[in-house]
Each structure stands twice: as structure tokens, then as C-alpha cells.
Simulated scan of single mutants.
Amino acid sequence: MTLKSLQVDATWVRRLVALAGRGWDRSELEDVFLRHGWARLGAGGRPEIAWGGGAASPHDIDGGGEGGIGWRLELGDPPGKGAEDAYVRLSCALFWPAFGEEPQDAEHTEDEEDDLDGDYGPAWIRRPGATRADFHAEYDRLGALIRAELGEPDRTTSADMDEYGEIWNRDTGEVVLQRTDDINSYSHYDVIALRVGIVQHPR
């Protein structure tokens, strides 16, 4: 059993949840990405941001590739007229094996390997031998950081295989902290993700 997590601190949480309170003008949002170091200027003088890639093609923040998977954001539709699913999502922690249950034979699991671990770079802090309780503790830690900004969630969701989510409603969007299946790794991991979804208001 393994847990790996990014060092998502109060600053990261504050910056992400603040997105849900913005008007989500594309140009203004891309300027925010630039100020936070989440994007670099492209040849045309605008930030290079991979909108629409979602889980299939995340937007690398720290270069990615050479040192393994690092900080990256999954991005939905570019905000603006006609956007149906505009969002920003950060995968914060990964737990293996997936699907919500502790293995019955822990000794056997220790002999197995997390085959995808080598794909992840040094930005991910590894905790070999971690339990699902440790995974839940990381979820609770992140939840406490969001509560410090937004108070208690407006609602919660749950499903089989340890899926759980807390949702905070905002004027122009919603903030979701979710514990769920990791699409990026084709369900190799369970993931804790912080997602900011945008409500598009007609102008």
C-alpha cells in the first residue's frame, strides 16, 4: 500500500477556491494563471494554457515529462460564451491499491509493486506502507484548509468504493473536494482532487 501526495498548502487552496468567486472572463483568468506561475507566456504574448484537455491531457505547471509527473491541472472548456463544462481540477493525493478497500492479505500486498510509481516525479511525497486511514487523513487535512476559507460545505455526496465529496456553492461556481477513482491512471489509484467548477452567467 502506498500514498503519495503533493504539498498542497493553504496558499494553494486559497488560490484555487478564489477562482469560484471570479466572473471567469477568459483573459482575466489566464492572467491569474500567469501571476500564480501556473502558465508561461507563449509566442503570441498570451499565456499557454491547455484548455479542454481534462484528465486525458492535463496542463503541466512545472514542465512535466523530464522529471516525471509533477504539478498539473486538469482543465475543462475555456471559460466564455458557449462553455458548458469549465473547470480547474488539481489531483492532490493518490492511494494504491484502488477501489476503496484495504486488501485482505496485507503481507501479500507488500510483495506487490505500485507499477506506476516511477512515472511520478519528486514533487510527489511518497509514504510506503500507508493505510487507507492515512489517505482519509489527507482528505480531512485538505478539507480543513477549505473550511478555513469557506466554512462548512453546503452538501456532501457518497458512493461505493470509498467515493466521497464535499461541495461548497459560490455565486459564480462551486468548489468540490472529492475522493474518487483516478481517471488519469486508468483506475490504478484512488485520488483526492480539488475541483473548481464554473457557473456561466449570460452577459
Rank of each mutant, 00 (worst) to 15 (best):
P79K: 05
W96Y: 09
T180S: 10
D171L: 11
D115T: 14
A20W: 04
S27A: 14
P202R: 12
R26M: 03
L75K: 08
L145G: 01
F135K: 05
R179W: 03
V175K: 11
Q178H: 08
D114R: 05
V13S: 01
K81C: 00
R170Y: 00
E74N: 10
D162G: 08
G70P: 08
R203V: 13
T180Q: 07
E107P: 02
R14Y: 06
H201F: 12
I146A: 00
D181M: 02
V176T: 14
T109N: 11
E102N: 11
Q7A: 12
D182P: 05
R179T: 05
N169A: 11
I125R: 04
G23H: 06
L75Q: 08
L29V: 15
R203W: 07
D111V: 07
W24D: 09
V88F: 01
P47K: 10
G23D: 14
L194F: 01
F135S: 11
A93L: 08
I49V: 15
A43G: 10
T180Y: 10
D60W: 10
D119F: 15
T180W: 11
G65F: 02
G151W: 01
V176C: 12
E102W: 00
E107S: 14
D114V: 07
P122K: 00
A144T: 15
E138Y: 00
S185T: 15
G67Y: 01
V17P: 06
E101K: 10
H136S: 11
L3C: 07
V196N: 09
L34Q: 07
L19Q: 11
G143V: 03
R35D: 11
D85R: 03
V88Q: 02
R72M: 11
L150I: 02
E102G: 04
A55L: 01
I146V: 14
A137D: 15
L3G: 10
D114M: 06
Q200A: 15
Q178S: 12
W12T: 14
E74L: 09
A86Y: 03
L75P: 09
L75G: 08
